[in-house]
Design a protein around this nucleic acid. Structure first.
Lengths: 209, 209, 209, 209
DNA sequence: GATGAATGAGTATTCATTCAT
DNA sequence: AATGAATGAATACTCATTCAT
């Protein structure tokens, strides 16, 4: 298996860390290929080039590795997003950037998109993390008068649902920048921006060329 | 088990039909409780008060009964919806009515909502059916100048995602008419209606008191 | 299903007899198609156009109907053979006639051959019946100086094994009079007749054109 | 269970090889006791003193282990036979030796006889292997003027049928050198040797004391 | 630490047989 | 007699988990 995300993170670490990362990377690949429910321990260890028993030297059970894998991916996406958003002050711009970049990053590494979609259903904690960032950006937009909504948990659910739809569409249909743009536009409309403004702003969204 | 939807449909039928319905009703209950993936044949037959072997006198395997269960629910919802929408000509009104009533019907029988959410993921055919109705109503609204969007498959995905979010929210948080109203409003905004008009129209949505 | 052997036998009888025969005929067909081990009660009743439960109004269990089916076929073959051999006095001639005609009769109705081969293994009683006739003919040939062997149970096993090989060969390869002739020749040689005489006599064997 | 043939073959090997052999040996015993069709996985693992699940660490399914068991036995018999026949040039002698020794070897380890009889029916490949040797020896005898027959597939079927009869007779009746001798004599007669010569030659057959 | 053999609980499925109608 | 729905024991197979080496 080629070096995955977790391997890279721990390339300087000891053997224990490297083996652990190999298992996490293998899990990403297997979950992407077969879904969370269908992922077997043996699939993971085989993909990692290890014996099945080795798994239990690192993780208590399947749930644990699934959770840690999803957290790891979510963390990686968050970090990258944070970086890219550090200079943006405008709430609306932050929301479109976060939306577009989140989608772009996940689709650029389709295994990540699979894992994120899977975790959204099964791992509420991952969801909560993402919601936290989202909420603060939307609230900023509201404070700046860009959005006209009450920021409820359900509103975040709706935004997340639109982002999920975008991931699913591109996982099945292949990468499509227009899907991402359309999603940004929809999110802005959802948040109470006028259709025309939403279109204008979405058009300048930072979807990668 | 109390009499379920399928039992009602066949209360006049022979023993065979009644047992078949008992299995389908049991499946609805089990899927709602544990999800499609986790549903076992033995769960179904136990819930129906039958021996495991009896299952195979009626269905080839788990997939078959899951499919038929989901189709049955989808059909029941469609029928009820059709009836209620027969007199409505305005595309925007049709869309809010369909959205609101679909959610209300599914939430009134929460097991149905669970099954519908499960099918959307696992049974593409059920999805396709629902999309068909949705698309024609949206296109009507576009033709009437109410909406300003290009009606793509992805647009339908977005609307479906919002409806799904509404179901999920109410399944977890309990019935909440405001979630339904909010969903209608969001759908209208998504379709290009101005935030103000969307709010106005969603307020008159036929969510049950 | 077309009328089978057992139906013919009982065409004059009452309903009970006719239904019973229908089950026996169905068993012949199913055993021929799938073998004794693989024959299911439901196969039989379906082939007979009856409900599964009806089976148990006529037979205690699967073994019983298999046994009776095999006996019926063996009896039918014996009867036909008896008739055809009534005028033959020469022991050698009787042995070739019995061998050749047994094979021909069984192959003419291939289902019978299948049943007979199956019974030989599983139903020793059928075997015993056939051995009885065979033994007396061989002993007659020995008494007439045509054969030079000690007539043991094992000798009969050998003859039966050759007949079985002939049935198998023609079931797989299609009817082939030369296989039957060759079998007669081999049986005669086995019984101590010189190769030349055996060939001569086998050539006049009553294999059907 | 006492150490069987396969265990002996692998007594030097690692644990994996020994367990695998234990399963094969257990299969031999179970097939001998109950026949191939009636052999259950659980019978095998119990006979081997293992848990049912262990079976699937070594074999895909029942067919696979049955096939490998039969091949293993056939191979063992072939090897032993090859050795014993290495110095024999005379075709007739080769045929009687092969016949007699095949029977003796199989009967000395009655489980082997059971497996071989079972394979002949269910595993055509095993049959084909044995036929190959048989055919070349018979053809040699024909070339040497010892036999007077056309060597067809059906002829081999006949010889095999006689050998099968010998195995069956001794499995039921207990070891009986006369059955083996008689079989050799019959085979020679079948191949066109005169009864007298056949008897003479069969008398010197290498049946074990 | 790593290995991989062994385990056995869990699940789907088949089918002979019973029995109420 | 005939029906066919219901039964449940039997069986194959999977896979997370344990543990001796």
């Amino acid at each position: 298996m080629r070096q995955g995300h977790f391997q890279e993170q721990t390339s300087g670490g000891g053997k224990r860390e490297r083996t652990r990362s190999a298992l996490l990377d293998a899990t990403v690949a297997v979950v992407a290929a077969k879904g969370m429910e269908a992922t077997k321990i043996l699939d993971i260890t085989e993909a990692a080039g290890l014996a099945n028993g080795t798994f239990y030297n690192y993780f208590r059970d399947k749930d644990e590795i699934l959770r840690e894998t999803a957290y790891g991916i979510a963390l990686a996406v968050s970090r990258q997003l944070d970086e890219e958003m550090s200079g943006i002050d405008d709430g609306a711009k932050r929301v479109t950037t976060a939306t577009a970049r989140f989608i772009e990053i996940a689709i650029a590494e389709p295994d990540w998109a699979h894992v994120l979609l899977g975790s959204a259903e099964h791992l509420p904690d991952v969801r909560r993390d993402i919601y936290h960032y989202l909420r603060s950006d939307i609230e900023r937009g509201v404070a700046q008068g860009k959005f006209d909504v009450e920021v409820t948990g359900f509103l975040l659910d709706q935004v997340a649902a639109l982002i999920g739809a975008a991931l699913r569409a591109q996982l099945h249909g292949g990468r499509d920048p227009d899907v991402t743009r359309q999603t940004c536009e929809s999110v802005l409309r959802l948040l109470g921006m006028s259709p025309a403004k939403a279109r204008k702003l979405a058009e300048t969204s930072p979807a990668q060329k």
